[in-house]
């Protein structure tokens, strides 16, 4: 795992808290950024996922057909895929709708208490019946638990990856 030079971050179904925690590295983010290029991220303007990315951090669970397409493509073009945070790892709060199913959610949100009741379908991706953790859909290389993982944890992970090591988080970070 040497020569990790390009980094991508993506969010699927989550709250962006993990990305916020990434930003909570504050100056350390700038420090690390001299060692890698952020090639794809909500923070930069590239719209298509590059052909080859060394490390991709994925926040969020897989909840829609878009997410599914996206994560498969990302996996294909990523050397080291990192599940960042509980939503990616466990489904977490995103997956709480699995307990009641997606249909009741739709009906409650779009049919009750609104004018023009209808379930949106135009230009929006279909929601999956079941929100799933990332590793249930594609193989994941590194797991970083936490809701969100602390900035220190993320810093540790990135530093070790940049140093060519497989990060070991056992005994460091837990769910929640």
């Amino acid at each position: 795992m040497s020569d990790l030079k390009t980094l991508a971050t993506v969010w699927l179904d989550g709250c962006s808290g993990c990305h916020m925690s990434l930003l909570d590295m504050d100056e350390r983010l700038v420090e690390l950024s001299s060692q890698f290029t952020l090639v794809y991220s909500p923070l930069v303007d590239r719209k298509t996922f590059p052909d080859r990315v060394d490390v991709t951090l994925v926040e969020g669970a897989v909840a829609s057909e878009d997410d599914l397409k996206k994560i498969r493509k990302i996996r294909e073009h990523t050397r080291v895929l990192v599940s960042l945070g509980d939503c990616a790892l466990t489904g977490n709060v995103s997956a709480m709708r699995n307990m009641c199913g997606v249909q009741p959610v739709m009906l409650r949100v779009y049919e009750q208490n609104v004018v023009q009741p209808q379930v949106p379908t135009v230009g929006v991706p279909a929601l999956l019946n079941r929100v799933r953790p990332v590793h249930e859909v594609v193989p994941v290389d590194v797991f970083v638990p936490g809701c969100p993982p602390s900035a220190d944890t993320i810093y540790q992970v990135l530093s070790e990856l940049l140093a060519g090591k497989v990060p070991t988080l056992e005994g460091v970070a837990h769910f929640g």
Partner: peptide, 21 residues
């Protein structure tokens, strides 16, 4: 339970979640 996951180094769950009601 959460502590155990930390102690045993269980970072994720490989088997599918059941989501019972």
């Amino acid at each position: 339970l959460q502590d155990l996951s930390l102690k045993l180094g269980m970072t994720h769950v490989e088997i599918p979640y059941q989501y019972p009601q």
